[in-house]
């Protein structure tokens, strides 16, 4: 058998699956977003009309789209830094030579990552129950009045953010831990001989050496957090007063509740464009910063 042919035979099944069930639908989504595909078209394809950019235009004028985008950006802007901060903090603790029982702590801190979002979201719904939840009970012990965590439009998103941080921080913790372990020990030894404090060692060795890891983790976490859906679906059903309706939640409702598949595809593409723009921006900013830092003082 000729080597070229063998290679293509090995590739065919995977490429077929990815081509038919991913690439083709992505292209179709672009086309779909330019049509008025709805319940009538679903019943009879002859009802389908090409509407060019009307779906996009209509979305940009809908307050619900902007509020969904606002909630998603809120979740990303607060959730990602909190999440990465928790990951870095846990990794620094685990990496300390003074820490004991490291394998146990590492496993325990990582455990929430492998759990099912739906199941743990259900747990949090009860932990944050206004009347019988542990959270309000603990706050009561500190003399703080009970909070209606998931029923108050101001508190629902912060509660979901807390949940997301708890659920996800272990993942990046493992990546940061590997990054920390890759920093040569001599750097710290040299700094110690020079009398540098723990904080200065962190600021001038750990932080810059973690830079590339930080950027990669940041980009992956941001794009993951933009895809917020299961948490509000289970914990709040997008409420109260739609305060936790995310962009994907809007896409799901628009597409599979109201069967406006054309408009829902436009939502999906707008989300994709926004995510892409944010990624590019993060890469640009980090390059810029490297450039500034790289200049001799």
């Amino acid at each position: 058998m000729n080597a070229q042919r063998a290679a293509w035979l090995f590739l065919t099944p995977a490429l077929l699956v990815l081509g038919v069930f991913f690439l083709l639908p992505v292209i179709a989504a672009l086309v779909l977003s330019l049509t008025d595909y709805d319940l009538y078209a679903l019943a009879d394809i002859r009802n389908l009309r090409f509407v060019a950019l009307q779906n996009y235009w209509a979305l940009l004028q809908r307050p619900l789209f902007w509020s969904a985008l606002g909630h998603t950006v809120y979740f990303v802007a607060v959730g990602v830094p909190l999440s990465m901060g928790a990951s870095l903090g846990a990794a620094l603790l685990l990496n300390s030579p003074l820490a004991r029982c490291k394998p146990f702590f590492r496993t325990a801190l990582f455990a929430p990552v492998v759990t099912t979002v739906v199941a743990t979201a259900v747990i949090w719904r009860y932990l944050f129950n206004t009347k019988y939840g542990w959270m309000n009970y603990a706050l009561d012990g500190l003399g703080i009045h009970p909070v209606d965590w998931l029923g108050d439009p101001h508190w629902a998103m912060p509660t979901i953010i807390l949940f997301a941080v708890w659920k996800n921080f272990g993942y990046n913790m493992i990546i940061f831990l590997a990054g920390l372990q890759a920093i040569p020990i001599d750097l710290y030894e040299a700094a110690r001989i020079d009398g540098a404090s723990a904080w200065r060692q962190f600021r001038h060795i750990t932080w810059p050496m973690l830079g590339p890891t930080m950027l990669m983790v940041g980009i992956l976490t941001v794009s993951g957090y933009f895809q917020l859906f299961a948490e509000p679906y289970v914990m709040t059903e997008g409420g109260p007063l739609q305060s936790t309706t995310s962009v994907l939640y809007l896409m799901y409702d628009e597409g599979f509740k109201w069967w406006n598949l054309g408009s829902a595809s436009a939502v999906a593409f707008l989300l994709f464009i926004i995510m892409f723009a944010v990624t590019v921006l993060m890469l640009k900013l980090s390059r810029h910063r490297q450039h500034v830092d790289g200049e001799p003082a």
């Binding site: 069930f21 639908p25 989504a29 779909l32 895809q227 595809s265 999906a268 892409f276 990624t279």
Partner: peptide
């Protein structure tokens, strides 16, 4: 090209995939 496709969130494909 495959690795580049990772930037596309899976949800973009879901609506047409359902129709398919």
């Amino acid at each position: 090209a495959l690795v580049g496709a990772l930037v596309i969130p899976a949800q973009v494909a879901m609506l047409p995939l359902f129709l398919l």
